[in-house]
Amino acid sequence: MGHGGNVIQELTTDHREVEELFGRIEALPPGAKERKILADQATMELIRHSVAEESYLYPAVREHLTGGDALADKEIEDHAKAEQMMKDLESLEADDPQFDTLMGQLMREIRMHVDDEEQNLFPKLAATCPPDALMDLGDKVRRAKKTAPTRPHPSAPDEPPANKLLAPGAGLVDRMRDMFSGRGKGA
């Protein structure tokens, strides 16, 4: 969850971790109970990652990139679509026929989003944002992930300042729910 380095290195490492979870899900047979456990872990990571991006990365995109508002808006829209899928997945068990369909859609959506960020957004940001600002953003993203929610909240605000104010409280409640339910303990 916290890896070190600048914001691009931090978020790229998150992307690799989620892809590893997706690969483990795909390697299991349909209906396997472990698929749900891994899907919950992926959701937890994706939600923390998304909250951190929305709190710090996208405001930096708006500030440092020409056309940054449109780029950030598109990324936030991608997040909203994925978050709704994760919310829908939350109530499904691995043996539900809808689980595999929805999980497949989520994985495709996330992979397209990751590819777009890594091929387009990150290089543009690296070219225009000072290195010390990228390091500072990396620190802020790491701190945000520590207190971010772990469950999808599609109706929650996704832009500063409201998201920065509400995320820690939702994160605390989510982590308590996770602790009591055992969610995210691994497969």
Score class of each variant (00 low, 15 high):
Glu90Cys: 01
Thr128Lys: 11
Gly186Cys: 07
Gly182Trp: 09
Thr128Glu: 15
Gly68Leu: 02
Leu121Glu: 05
Gly5Phe: 05
Ala72Glu: 06
Lys74Gln: 14
Val114Met: 06
Ile110His: 02
Ala60Gln: 09
Lys36Ala: 11
Val114Lys: 02
Thr101Ser: 12
Pro123Glu: 06
Phe99Met: 05
Val7Ile: 15
Arg183Ser: 08
Gly67Asp: 08
His3Met: 11
Ile110Cys: 00
Leu121Cys: 00
Gly23Ile: 07
Ala94His: 04
His49Ile: 02
His153Gln: 08
Gly171Phe: 07
Glu53Thr: 07
Cys129Trp: 04
Pro123His: 00
Val18Pro: 00
Lys33Pro: 04
Arg183Gly: 03
Asn120Gly: 02
Glu63Trp: 10
Ala70Trp: 06
Lys146Gly: 15
Glu75Tyr: 01
Lys124Ile: 00
Leu65Gly: 03
Asp136Met: 11
Leu165Thr: 14
Ser91Glu: 11
Lys36Asp: 08
Lys74Asp: 14
Met44Leu: 07
Glu26Leu: 10
Ile37Lys: 10
Ala148Ser: 11
Lys140Cys: 10
Ser50Trp: 05
Arg48Ile: 04
Pro149Asp: 04
Ala32Lys: 05
Gln9Arg: 14
Ala32Ser: 12
Thr43Met: 13
Ile76Asn: 03
Gly169Val: 11
Gly23Ala: 08
Glu34Ile: 01
Ser155Lys: 12
His79Thr: 04
Gly4Phe: 01
Gly138Lys: 06
Glu75His: 02
Asp96His: 13
Leu134Tyr: 08
Phe180Arg: 13
Asp139Arg: 15
Arg175Asn: 07
Asp132Ser: 13
Thr101Ala: 11
Val173Arg: 13
Ile76Val: 15
Met103Cys: 09
Lys81Ala: 13
Ala27Pro: 03
Gly182His: 09
Ala156Leu: 08
Asn6Lys: 05
Glu10His: 04
Ala52Ile: 11
Met1Val: 13
Thr128Val: 08
Pro160Glu: 11
Leu21Thr: 10
His79Phe: 03
Val173Tyr: 07
Met103Asn: 09
Met176Glu: 09
Arg142Val: 12
Val114Ser: 01
Arg16Glu: 14
Gly182Lys: 08
His79Asn: 05
Ala187Asn: 04
His3Trp: 15
Ala70Gln: 14
Gly169Ala: 15
Lys74Ser: 12
Asp69Phe: 02
Gly2Lys: 15
Ala32Phe: 01
Met1Gln: 10
Asp78Gly: 00
